[in-house]
Amino acid sequence: MEIVADGLGMRAGEVWLLRDVDLRVSPGECLVLTGPNGSGKSTFLRAVYGMQEPAEGIVTVGGAAPDERDRNFRRRLSVLLDDSDFFAEFTPAQHLDLLATSFGVDLDVDTLLAGAELADRADVTAGSLSAGQRRRLLLLGATARPFDVLLLDEPERALDAAGKRWLTDVIARATGDGAVVVLATHHPPLLGAADHVLELGALEPVR
C-alpha cells in the first residue's frame, strides 16, 4: 500500500508548514519525519490519514486519496497520534482481547504483553498504569492489529531506554512484514529504521 506525495503543501493559517514535498514510500519501507516542534510533522501524518486536506499538491495511499471516514481505509491503516487514547477502566489484557475481536484475529495476548514488559500489569486497569506503561499499551494497540500502513507520532514519548529498544524492534517487524511505516520523532536512534528521511524546517509566510 504505497504512499505518494506530489508537490504536497500544508499550511496553518498564514504560514506554510511544509511545501513542495515529493516522495514515494513503498511496502516494507519506513519514512522518518524529523524537525523542530511546529515544523509540520504531525500535519503530514494527518494528511496521510485523510484528516487534513492539502493546501497544494496531492497525497495518495494505495493509489487513492486518503479518507479516515472510510471504514475499509481505516482498517488498513493503524495510527497513533497525539489524541489517541485507551479505555481507562479496561486492563491491558482486555484491550488486546477487544482488539482481537474487533479485527477477527487470534492474538497471543500473554506473549504480546510480555514483549512490552506489561505481563505483570495484565490485569491492572489502564488508568492506573504509569505514563511509560500507558505508552506501551497504546503502541501495542496500534501494532498488534492487522495493518498495511502504520503512522506513529513521536512514539518514543514517555518510554524508558528499554521501551525505546522494544519500539525499534516493533517497527522493524512491521516493515519486515511488508507494511509502510511513517513516524515523526525526536529520537535520533529511530533514524536507523529509516529508508527515507523527510526533514522539515522553519515556517514560511504564505505567498
Rank of each mutant, 00 (worst) to 15 (best):
D106M: 03
E89F: 14
V4I: 13
A116N: 06
D22Q: 02
V21R: 11
L159Y: 04
S42V: 05
G57M: 04
P54Q: 06
R75K: 15
G50Q: 11
R71E: 13
G127M: 09
P66Q: 10
G13E: 11
T34P: 04
I58E: 15
L159H: 06
Q94A: 15
S26W: 00
L200M: 11
V105P: 06
K164L: 09
R121E: 10
A12D: 13
V15S: 13
P205A: 09
A144E: 04
R173T: 02
F147H: 15
R121Y: 12
E53M: 04
A116R: 05
D70L: 09
A47H: 10
L151E: 00
V109E: 08
G28D: 10
S78T: 03
L107V: 11
G141I: 01
A158H: 14
P54H: 08
L18S: 05
R76C: 10
A179H: 07
L118H: 07
G201F: 02
V181Q: 03
E154N: 06
S102C: 03
G28Y: 10
L31S: 01
V180Y: 05
R157S: 13
L118R: 11
C30S: 08
G40Y: 07
Y49E: 05
G163F: 00
L107M: 08
E14P: 02
G57K: 07
